[in-house]
């Protein structure tokens, strides 16, 4: 590893003593970060994988007797609530990832050339739901979605669009769409910031040259802007996928997974198993599966985005 050493090249060969000193110094600089990283990320990660092989609950600790091998994983695939939660999670990902990506690309393109304050204003507005935090967001939406007295039912009814109040969060078919809507408003902030930055970095002379050559707006977009913002799109896809897979706070605060598990997600079911059913091993098995799925999705997105023009 120390062989390919660009910094050392001009000084011919850096002596061994110096190199060892450099390594020691580097690790001293890294030490605080590494300590925290090891203790609170690496160790729990290993613990999670290992304990997922045990029937580890509040009453039965990790021991030879509670070892079940892949038992938890096998049980998961027979668990109706888990399968339902997985299905809901996939629906959330499949709907929200394209919606968020298209929308933020549209907003980004619409505002990136505007004057400073207009750009900051819109960027700020779309980031607002992220900043206010999921609890505040949920409180206000739940208040507006209220079955009996909420402002949405009031508005729809007094404008004559509906006759009977809609049970937004209590109806199996409607609840998941309410959650998708709220999730959408809390997901577009970061992608918009990224797209505004990426579009601002597109080589303007190329855009102008294309326009002089008579390219339409659409042609300019696909030929020049799209290739330039492709890494950003990839990043947006990955983070939105990861975030959607982890959708939790909205579910827990808004519907608690109900009615009859129609809005339960993997993350929420994991939480329920760990913190109200005290089935730690089972919950950790769920965590491992979720991590694997997210890793596969991210890898797939990298692959599909990388086919095509490379430069």
């Amino acid at each position: 590893m120390g062989q390919s050493n660009p910094a050392a090249a001009p000084q011919k060969s850096l002596s061994h003593v110096l190199q060892r000193r450099e390594t020691t110094v580097a690790y001293l600089f890294l030490l605080p970060a590494l300590l925290f990283f090891a203790a609170f990320v690496i160790v729990p990660m290993i613990m999670g994988v290992v304990t997922s092989l045990f029937n580890y609950t509040m009453k039965s600790p990790v021991s030879a007797e509670s070892f079940v091998g892949l038992g938890n994983y096998i049980e998961l695939f027979k668990d109706k609530v888990f399968l339902r939660s997985m299905w809901n999670t996939v629906v959330i990902v499949v709907v929200s990832v394209p919606a968020v990506t298209f929308f933020s690309l549209w907003v980004g393109s619409a505002i990136y050339q505007k004057t400073g304050w207009i750009r900051s204003f819109f960027r700020g507005v779309f980031y607002l739901p992220v900043v206010t935090g999921s609890v505040t967001v949920v409180v206000v939406w739940k208040w507006m979605f209220d079955f009996q007295r909420g402002i949405f039912n009031w508005a729809l009814k007094s404008s004559g669009l509906i006759e009977k109040n809609i049970n937004w969060l209590g109806d199996q078919k409607v609840a998941i769409w309410c959650i998708l809507l709220i999730l959408f408003t809390t997901s577009v902030g970061q992608p918009i910031v990224l797209y505004v930055a990426a579009l601002g970095n597109v080589d303007q002379s190329q855009v102008e040259a294309a326009q002089v050559d008579g390219a339409t707006k659409l042609q300019t977009f696909w030929q020049i802007k799209w290739p330039a913002i492709k890494p950003t799109t990839l990043y947006v896809l990955v983070i939105t996928t990861i975030n959607s897979f982890q959708c939790f706070a909205l579910i827990q605060l808004l519907t608690s997974g109900g009615p009859s598990n129609s809005t339960s997600t993997v993350m929420y079911y994991l939480y329920r198993n760990a913190f109200s059913l005290y089935r730690y091993g089972y919950a950790n098995a769920m965590g491992v599966i979720l991590a694997i799925i997210i890793a596969i999705f991210s890898a797939l997105q990298f692959k599909t985005m990388n086919t095509g023009v490379e430069y």
Binding site: V41, M45, A291
Partner: peptide, 23 residues
């Protein structure tokens, strides 16, 4: 070291929460 940092970043933070409570 750097690869380890990057890989951990791609993983969902929430999956380590149950063991973290234990710690």
């Amino acid at each position: 070291v750097f690869t380890l940092f990057i890989c951990a970043m791609a993983l969902p933070k929430q999956v380590v929460l149950v063991p973290l409570v234990r710690i």
